[in-house]
């Protein structure tokens, strides 16, 4: 099977590394943004856009395309970097993040950026929006699938659980949610701010098929997604155990970089670690 091919996985990992580098560069240049949460979900997004999803950068509105909703909208830089790597728009445009007149808003805007499926940023909306798309697919007897990436901080939001009930009630087996379990939210560790555990049991109780993986392993992301595709009559959540700030040593597991751009020195260090110091 191709997906277990070492070289293929290495290619995805190389894309992920570039996406991390772009994300940090964009935030550094913009002078603001959310590096920590941008980095933790990169691998899921890369696996989706470079292996899992049917999509066409030349036709962002292709009706048969799979849809991706970034519910944790503050990870916008990495979504933009992925979309640019996937050729939805030129890499050069990444420099415009958060700048006046840019198509790349601080949080995703579906009316401005090609490839962005839903405007997000206010947390806890993405799963419900994804459900709407999944209902539409069922109504139209279309086979496209919906993928939603949520942050674990969004598990605090009541609407997340309303949407969890709806997906289960309407047997939406065409939606898969990735839960970026990086265990940190703005004010501190999730378990200190608002206890989430036992998280897997909660989703099971809501009628979802639950898979837990290492969210930085391309192989595990792809395997879990394949498993989700085979589940009939109920939605699947893939709890991705991740590290906030993954890929930049001093950002990993750091609360400090939830919503702060790196300094000049920190930026240089990050580029060195991501192997793009020359760029």
């Amino acid at each position: 099977m191709e997906i277990y091919d070492g070289e293929f996985i290495a290619e995805l990992e190389a894309v992920a590394k570039r996406v991390r580098s772009h994300s940090i560069t964009m935030i550094y240049r913009a002078g603001s943004g959310h590096p920590g949460g941008s980095l933790s979900g990169v691998d899921v997004m890369v696996a989706l856009y470079f292996h899992i999803m049917k999509h066409d950068p030349n036709r962002p509105d292709w009706p048969e395309r799979d849809r991706f909703v970034l519910s944790k909208g503050h990870a916008a830089p990495s979504l933009y970097a992925v979309l640019s790597e996937a050729k939805y728009f030129p890499e050069k445009e990444l420099e415009t993040l958060r700048k006046l007149g840019s198509r790349l808003q601080g949080h995703p805007c579906m009316r401005k950026t090609p490839g962005v499926e839903m405007s997000t940023g206010s947390l806890g909306h993405g799963l419900a929006a994804g459900n709407g798309m999944a209902l539409a697919a069922k109504l139209d007897r279309k086979l496209y699938r919906i993928y939603v990436l949520c942050g674990d901080g969004e598990m605090d939001v009541g609407e997340t659980w309303e949407a969890a009930m709806l997906a289960s009630h309407y047997k939406l087996d065409n939606i898969t949610m990735y839960l970026d379990r990086n265990k940190l939210q703005l004010d501190g560790p999730t378990e200190k701010i608002m206890s989430l555990e036992p998280l897997a049991d909660k989703w099971k109780a809501f009628g979802w098929h639950v898979i837990e993986i290492n969210g930085h392993s391309m192989k595990e992301i792809i395997q879990a997604t394949n498993e989700a595709r085979g589940v009939k009559g109920r939605p699947t959540v893939i709890i991705c155990h991740t590290i906030k700030g993954k890929g930049v040593s001093y950002m990993e597991g750091s609360l400090h970089f939830h919503g702060k751009a790196p300094t000049d020195e920190e930026y240089k260090q990050a580029m060195k670690e991501l192997g793009t110091a020359d760029q």
Binding site: A129, G130, N131, A137, E162, A163
Partner: peptide, 14 residues
Amino acid sequence: QNMIDTAAGLAASG
């Protein structure tokens, strides 16, 4: 809240 966001997903799908 869930109803309005679900509506958004449906509307975004035509």
